[in-house]
Design a binder for these strands. Structure first.
Lengths: 199, 199
DNA sequence: ACACCTTATTGAACATTGTTCACTAACTCT
DNA sequence: AGAGTTAGTGAACAATGTTCAATAAGGTGT
């Protein structure tokens, strides 16, 4: 192999991550391997281990980026309409993002390259996303105490997760003719209508 | 390898499946491999391919058995109490079964050895389980039309699936302090209270 | 300009996976 | 007993993640 010029660590790191994202996008999770990345960036598989400790670490960095993209997505949605409508919008945006990027979902939650311990920022990122939902829930039902709003938000997220997980694995249609979007909308409606039976 | 006596096909088939279930139970999904099964039943990995077309086929048979066990579990629950209480009981039984047998869950829904097409009985089995829930839903709210009951049941199943999926992957505690049981109970309550606001 | 040293990069190796296949041993039938 | 069928085997293949001694490139000191 012709030896590449030495390159700043950070640049190589970036190249690896970009390549990983590209492969995930183009070929899905099963196409991602150390050798595939290496081939693409003109290095050898072993070189990747000078920068990252494991394949799982690379996926974690991809995840960090995915969470950032989700935050941006959520914040780029129009802030108009009732809180209920905005909640629906966020849920649908989340689902459609995952539908467009199934491999990113696999990296986030799929069984692909399981790990024991997740870094703190992982949970914080998810809680950050959920915080936006909780705020809207409180707006929708002002008398709702924030702690209960938090719990309801977590329940909503978990339910939506179920729908997305099944849809990304192409298993949802085995259970139901409903789409993930419809299921999420119904669950959200059930939750909202309970808080404000008449509005 | 000392060549085992020839044995009726069906017997070997059974031995393979029992071994697979045993390994899943003892070592979890990552411990399951063609060679591991072969070692346990005193054959060679290649022999397994005289009986099953692929590892995925073996998992599918394990799944068939798991569905049967779930049906038995559901039917063995006491048929007393309100329909609402019985719905809660079934959900909790499902969750606790999966908690006790995480590898069986992985075989059913986890990313482990993905496949494209699922046999018909797979969907039928899940719909069979859901049918029991739908019946109870109709009992709980007699004015509910069966089709909508079916859709609600599917939504419930998907939501519970989300909770179980995260809990089995040891990721639920990253999102929330609530357990899968609590989440399922809350979602179910939300669904029920909407059907019968006052009862 | 030359030698030295540090370190990025490599190729080869290991263990493991699912799966295939030609060969052989064991059984069945005539 | 001999022929034919088939179950079981061992070895092989292509991958995987990961490790490691060897090497080449680059910067540094004189």
């Amino acid at each position: 192999m012709s030896r590449p010029q030495r390159v700043p660590r950070a640049e190589l790191r970036q190249a690896i991550l970009e390549s990983a994202r590209g492969i995930l996008d183009r070929e899905g999770a099963p196409g991602l391997s150390a050798r595939a990345i290496a081939r693409e960036i003109g290095y050898t598989a072993a070189s990747i281990y000078n920068v990252f400790g494991s394949m799982s670490d690379i996926l974690m960095e991809v995840n960090r980026d995915t969470f950032a993209r989700l935050e941006q997505l959520f914040d780029s949605l129009p802030a108009t309409g009732t809180p209920a409508a905005r909640l629906h919008l966020i849920c649908q945006a989340y689902i459609s993002f995952m539908r467009r990027n199934p491999a990113l979902w696999s990296a986030l939650f799929g069984g692909i390259r399981q790990r024991e311990n997740f870094p703190d920022w992982y949970g914080e990122a998810i809680r950050g996303l959920m915080g936006r939902l909780a705020l809207l829930l409180c707006e929708h039902a002002p008398e709702l105490d924030p702690e209960r709003a938090g719990r309801l938000t977590e329940q909503l997220y978990v339910a939506v997760h179920g729908a997305v997980a099944l849809e990304v694995d192409r298993r949802l249609d085995i259970l139901t003719a409903q789409s993930a979007s419809e299921i999420a909308a119904s669950v959200l409606d059930a939750m909202l209508s309970r808080l404000k039976p008449k509005a």
